[in-house]
Design a protein around this nucleic acid. Structure first.
Lengths: 361, 361
DNA sequence: TCCGATTTGTTCGTATGTATG
DNA sequence: GCATACATACGAACAAATCGG
């Protein structure tokens, strides 16, 4: 489709000329273009050549023609109906809707349409979805990697996207072996400041519950551990809970119940996210303990769950909607060729509510 | 674009002829079509006319041309890539994700792609979205009406859909002046059984907080009132709170705070949904009252919020994911012409948890 | 590697039909 | 009815890519 520099057909030159006029706003939507015979005279070319240009421009959505009236500039410029795909891990009622709201708002404003697919945290479904999107005529794709801590079996599809010059952007996690645009949080720092806050409150017996099959979990745990190390607190391995996505709704509760049965139970718990914290909270209630008097609790993501409960949860801020808007803007800029492989890292921030208390020595 | 019966241009006849061949499988993907000069001889038309046909067929994706080699049948035949649009009111982290999950799963399985847009509870944005979807080449549309209790200013777009034979299906609410396919809950019955449950527990001073600008709110309130009437309980107008969507995050809390200051405060409250119930719960906590000892509380929708709190909420079941799957299956059946205007009404069901208590006389 | 036959791509000229104002 | 603008249709020529000999 890319024309060589050496020789440019006349119809192609005219086409590009008119396209430029529209892009520069010299011809505005609904404005009448010069008639075919005008252009014949102006450029000293045949009417057929003009019609060839018009025909291609009409197909690409730049203009429309009305018999007897004339040829007019179309309304939507060139993005006749550009579609952006969003491939997420799971359509949850957790932070997903906020991010999607940001994406929807931004893309909608800019006149893009977008399709959503989810992998259900299954790498093979991720593959299927990538295949499907590649078959469709998409202009860009936003991907939240599924089980990002595991090997990236779908690398070839990203390479195929590169080959076709379809921009893609990773959300929440990156693949180490893939040079891509991305928007993530500094999850290691997030885990660090969550633990640091508790350490500064005087806690020493701090438990942590983290997801093990995505990079966010790995990084949050790494930050958690490095904070303990910095404050010279030895890590009790029994206080560290790792679970896989599939155990999301069973492990946190059960692990906490067992944790609280121990003689030397922890005085504080850091959770992978608020969803986990809610389950831990329930386990604490069932163990007849109080937050924050008996146990301090820190969540992550500042979801709506954090303030729905009786004790408001201290947690790490997640930009959610802002992040959705950002990724949408970034993918649009990439489509427009304004940037190549942009990235952005959000700095985590602690939101202090009432689920933590100083630990009396 | 629809050509009249009387006169058909030659290029158009040839185009339709070739399209038929491909649709009937007489020409299979990658197979070479007769050359331009072959067709010139065969149909005794000019080469230019043949090229016009080829050009349109190429644009519509039926064939592709390779200079020096020939013209070939394209790979995807007529299957194109059917897209279904979903127009929702708001991408919330309430029940929306569950419904969307059901829709996504079903449509994905059936090989459809789908686009989401939301109106932000604004009728004019609903109009814009409908316009945009009409410009696109969608195969069907699922609409959750925005402010369904208000007049349907966008009726013309639904009529346009009818005219184009694009099936559409309404979710959660219907328009009285529009004969359409729909999937709703029997919200009046839902409101009724919520109130009835409290009446049977012995409560007489029952407050109700309902949304006033969508049909679900109107119907739930109607059911609520008819239960009171049936049990010969006079309605205290001060106990009835009506709010608009815009007041969603302020009214329920403030109304409850004022309600509980009264000397003759209610002993039970029915809420439009769980989201409202959570705010009411917070107001009850702040008023130093206990659920269910001092106040009984009933929600609606059985969302994840209902079990996140310390006191688990008694609420009305909402099929959510099941409903999503159902609407997706229904729109697919409509697209395939298997049904015309199907509908389904879910029966509400009470889920009893621990937010209500018998009222001691 | 070049040639010639075939096939599509570009460009000209001309004429007539049909819708709009 | 007339001028204008786009739509259809014919003929002709040469360029550029492909392929077999």
């Amino acid at each position: 489709m890319i024309k060589p520099d050496k020789y440019l057909p006349k119809y192609y030159q005219l086409k590009e000329y008119l396209k430029q006029m529209i892009q520069n706003g010299e011809i505005i939507p609904a404005q009448k273009l010069p008639s075919e015979s005008d252009l014949v005279r102006q450029f000293k070319i045949s009417r057929h050549t003009v019609r060839h240009s018009f025909s291609e421009l009409e197909n690409e959505g730049w203009l429309y023609r009305e018999q007897g009236k004339g040829t007019f500039c179309a309304y939507r410029g060139s993005k006749k109906e550009q579609k952006i795909a969003v491939l997420t891990t799971y359509i949850s009622n957790y932070i997903f809707p906020s991010i999607m709201r940001g994406i929807e708002e931004t893309l909608c404003e800019s006149g893009f349409s977008f399709s959503i697919a989810s992998t259900g945290n299954n790498k093979h479904k991720e593959e299927e979805c990538m295949k499907r999107f590649l078959e469709q005529d998409i202009s860009g794709i936003i991907v939240e990697p599924t089980k990002s801590a595991k090997p990236n079996i779908n690398k070839k599809y990203f390479q195929e996207l590169d080959k076709r010059h379809i921009p893609y952007l990773l959300l929440h996690a990156t693949y180490p072996d893939l040079d891509s645009a991305y928007v993530i949080m500094d999850d290691e720092k997030g885990g660090f400041i969550a633990a640091q806050y508790l350490l500064k409150l005087g806690h020493k017996d701090i438990a942590g519950i983290f997801l093990s099959d995505d990079l966010q979990g790995i990084r949050r745990q790494a930050g958690f551990l490095s904070a303990l190390k910095k404050y010279n607190v030895t890590v009790n391995n029994e206080f560290l809970g790792n679970y896989k996505t599939e155990q999301m709704f069973s492990f946190p509760y059960n692990f906490t119940i067992n944790l609280l049965k121990k003689k030397n139970r922890p005085t504080a718990i850091v959770c992978y996210n608020d969803q986990i914290a809610i389950q831990v909270m329930e386990a604490i209630r069932r163990s007849n303990l109080k937050i924050p008097q008996d146990i301090s609790l820190v969540g992550y993501d500042n979801s709506n769950l954090a303030v729905a409960t009786e004790v408001k949860l201290t947690t790490i801020k997640h930009p959610k909607e802002e992040m959705g808007k950002r990724v949408a803007h970034m993918i649009i800029d990439m489509i427009n060729g304004e940037v190549k492989k942009p990235y952005f890292v959000y700095e985590p921030e602690l939101i202090i509510r009432s689920s933590c208390k100083t630990f009396p020595k």
